[in-house]
Design a binder for these strands. Sequence first.
DNA 1: GTGAAAGCGCTAACAA
DNA 2: TTGTTAGCGCTTTCAC
Lengths: 332, 332
Amino acid sequence: MAVTIREVAQAAGVHVSTVSRTFSAPNLVNAETRERVIAAAAELGYRPNLAARALTTGRTNNLGLIVADIANPFFPPLIKAAQSYARVRGYQVFVADTDEDPRVEEELIGTLARQVDGVLLVSPRLSNAAIARLGADLPFAVVNRRVKGLPAVLMDVGSGAGAAVDHLAGLGHRRLAVLGGPRSSWTSGQIRRAAGAAAERHGVDLSYHGPNAPTEQGGYRAAAAVLEAGATGVIAYNDLVAIGAIEGLAVEGAEVPRDISVVGVDDTVAGRLNHPKLTTIAMPTQTAGRAAVDLLLQAIDVAGSGTVQMILETDLLVRESTGPCPAVDRRA
Amino acid sequence: MAVTIREVAQAAGVHVSTVSRTFSAPNLVNAETRERVIAAAAELGYRPNLAARALTTGRTNNLGLIVADIANPFFPPLIKAAQSYARVRGYQVFVADTDEDPRVEEELIGTLARQVDGVLLVSPRLSNAAIARLGADLPFAVVNRRVKGLPAVLMDVGSGAGAAVDHLAGLGHRRLAVLGGPRSSWTSGQIRRAAGAAAERHGVDLSYHGPNAPTEQGGYRAAAAVLEAGATGVIAYNDLVAIGAIEGLAVEGAEVPRDISVVGVDDTVAGRLNHPKLTTIAMPTQTAGRAAVDLLLQAIDVAGSGTVQMILETDLLVRESTGPCPAVDRRA
DNA sequence: GTGAAAGCGCTAACAA
DNA sequence: TTGTTAGCGCTTTCAC
């Protein structure tokens, strides 16, 4: 059995409460005694039992981190950043994957609820109403979703999508298409809205195709519809969808960027290594992971600390998957 | 405050222990009473406090999962599989990233020790001795490392590396190079050993270059040395290193696969999307994640359940980054 | 500055 | 089948 506070107390010749104080409020204990306790603890290899501590303090020093799909390359850098920052702040983190299923998401929140001090919802698939309801019981911070009353980190993909439309319009494209992501994705909505607005500004056409699975498969399947719509410029929900679309287009005989231009979102390794290298909207995932933990801890420490909504810039990275509009309509 | 067992007991008109039994040993309680308790619990939204339960039972129903680098594309599919399978078995999992640092790894194990029932060490960077020592206190399962007395899941990268050498020798290559990974990586050692043996069998030359960081950077930096050695066939520690090496070789004027062939390891998306598409040794990461959780739970349930070492097959996937040895030595 | 005692939410003998 | 009781490891008043 593991070493408990009692054994340390005995070894140091003090009462358990003194040992407890030595670790949780060292200034309340005589320097000399403190030394003795610390020595005894080290000697025995004492490690406080966090679960037991949680029982009395109500603080677990654990966080939950819920994402749609750990294997989607968008998430790992965010998870890594969040985890590593949380550790620095003294928290361990439960990571859970919902497989894009809102019901799993809700169930996960329930299971985690009593073993964490707060939960980070990254690109949630739950409805705003559900999140708000659950958020009444447990501190939340949300990434890529705006929920009334909850701290949020938003990556301003809208401005990126606008820039992408500017870029495509500047290259002479007059018919654009947006390949949306999952129905409940806030990011997808932002892209659609902002691209629509920018298209209108430029007086170019824009069609919407979705929802699609946020995977290569999803993009691959949507390729035909894009061609159908006669678009020569595409903005995809994410890099994976963009890559899938490029494959799908190739099958249909359309080459990127010669015949059609494609823009991704996320700036994942996948996009960087794809051939052609993806023009993409870079998302500040690591900053977001860290910032979200920051906001969450703040919400935990001072309940009702106001609702900070942090907006992070995104960047359009022009690479090889976009080019000038072909002079003649490919479909003519 | 959250609903406790006491409130449920009161609402159902029974004693707390009956409520407890209703959930942990339902067959010990009268069907009728059980119904009443369950109804009351549902009504109040009762969720047992796992931490409190852990205090009495000594079982947390939590697992730790420690990896070298969450953002390395090798890990996410494994993490996902492990997490999802653990959930099915009723366990939540703490995921932690050591940033390739053995000291962080050891510290993490210490912090996690009292809040989990066992820890999964994936591609650990700690020495065998350290792992064995820590494993005395806490159930471990290890992936890609063989530690005496601990359950392990091994991906047989050695046979893959042998196949890669066969493949390269078959293409006429007579000077091969291995680009190793981190010093403490078991996988790296296996590759080196197996490639060496196979090279000897074929009577071809094989040089070793390492250790390298398990990243594109690492491969990029190693490219010059490969050329220096006059190798025309390379087996890299992982896909990332392979991709970096290809870039580095390009800078030095060597084109893949025309001038030199490169084989990766892992079969990550990155390799599949790279140009040229990477010939690589596919690792069964998802199977491994699931199997490791299985072994770990087994070790937890029946202490000293014997040391199962599970060996998983790997596959050589021939794609575009390998080709025939150039007729004339490029360096001649 | 230190000890005593109560209690966090739950489970596990033991009684009844 | 159900209630009673003690106690898991720790923190936190309250006395001294």
